[in-house]
Nucleic acid binder design. Structure first.
Lengths: 218, 218
DNA sequence: AGTTCCATGTCGCGG
DNA sequence: CCGCGACGTGGAACT
């Protein structure tokens, strides 16, 4: 990783056009050529960047980074205050725990929390427009379940698309939808209920408790 | 901005839990306290971070960053390879040109490019599921317009939601939809046309020309 | 503070 | 390489 601290201005042209007036910033060049320009301000993301693959041309006082899609990042360097480079080696990568996959597993093992008599048919049931998180069955017929950490309008749209296709399958019909999330936004709830989709807010932490060995002692 | 290159492992606990095994990485601390951990790999984003406001406690070989929402970032430092700091001052900020707001303005001033006899009723017309970019009128009745830089399937879904609600308003009905973008993806076009939504590809650069003072001389 | 939607979203996975 | 969906999405604008 190469680090350059410089007084610079930056222009990006591609998906849109941006201009960054002259100031002191950090320019980061990663091992694969990824370039990022960071200010000292309150931002996690860089102000400008160019992902890999790209080509970096260093002229006198000017860097030009281009990629194959017609995007161009131009960095004008007025004064380089500092420059260094480090060999960091391959990164082992980030391990995540508690994402949607895990929530799906928790609920799949306890589908009865979604309603009396609920039974799991299968997880990740495929449809032409993508896989349904859970396909279940209860006294009303087939139940398609979409699980989210946060219940947003997009999730309702997603479930709606699944229902549209599942409903055409005579072996499954009738199919109703259940939208499950830790927190369901008002607009998402409005849209869901308008389409006859049930909304269930679930406390995943509580669910995890049920799943835990501690409770299994009883 | 403070830069630390160190052999470290990182743990985050908050919205989920993550673990980052021991390796050499760059730790960036911005002026307002924002902390970010970058690997040398193919990533623009940091692997872990903690935005502002937060509190950083530096113990011997361990940094603990917490915020008011119960999130915690723990960085264990095994060896600090390098450390430095720079005063960068306030950043003038990024100027953007060509984002959706601007496109909307350009089209709002020239709604006739969307069809003969088209008239603008209002921009950002509110519905229960969000604001319609443009609400227009022509000989066919009311026209709801969704404007995107890139015409993706999400945009069609969005417009469909608006139409669903607008169509129920007796004062507006009948309402048809128009999906406008510089480039409309085949799948988005397919879905749109399946739902009776018109697709219009517009050259925003050309539109900007029309809008420019140069042409106004004529 | 809460909610909405945009974003050069980014990123990872599967076809 | 493209499409799809999750993301600690982040960030801004507006209520």
């Amino acid at each position: 990783m190469r680090l350059v601290v410089a007084d610079c201005s930056v222009d990006y042209s591609g998906r849109l056009d941006t201009h960054l007036p002259r100031a002191t910033r950090l320019i980061m060049v990663k091992a694969d050529g990824t370039v990022a320009v960071h200010a000292d301000g309150s931002r996690v993301q860089p102000l400008n960047w160019m992902g890999t693959p790209n080509q970096l041309i260093e002229e006198d006082g000017r860097w030009i980074v281009t990629n194959g899609k017609g995007e161009r990042l131009t960095i004008d360097l007025y004064q380089v205050l500092y420059e260094t480079a480090f060999e960091m080696g391959e990164d082992p990568g980030l391990q995540k725990d508690g994402v949607e996959t895990e929530l799906q597993r928790l609920i799949a093992e306890r589908v009865e929390v979604l309603g009396p008599g609920m039974e799991l048919i299968r997880r990740e049931h495929p449809t032409p427009v993508g896989p349904v998180d859970l396909l279940c069955r209860d006294s009303s017929g087939t139940v398609a379940v979409e699980i989210k950490r946060r219940g947003d309008i997009d999730g309702v749209e997603q479930l709606t698309r699944y229902l549209e296709f599942l409903g055409r399958d005579e072996r499954l019909a009738p199919v109703r939808g259940v939208f499950v999330a830790q927190l369901i936004k008002p607009q998402a709830r409005l849209l869901a209920e308008d389409r006859g989709i049930d909304c269930i807010e679930l406390d995943y932490d509580g669910l995890r408790e049920i799943d835990s060995p501690i409770l299994k002692l009883f």
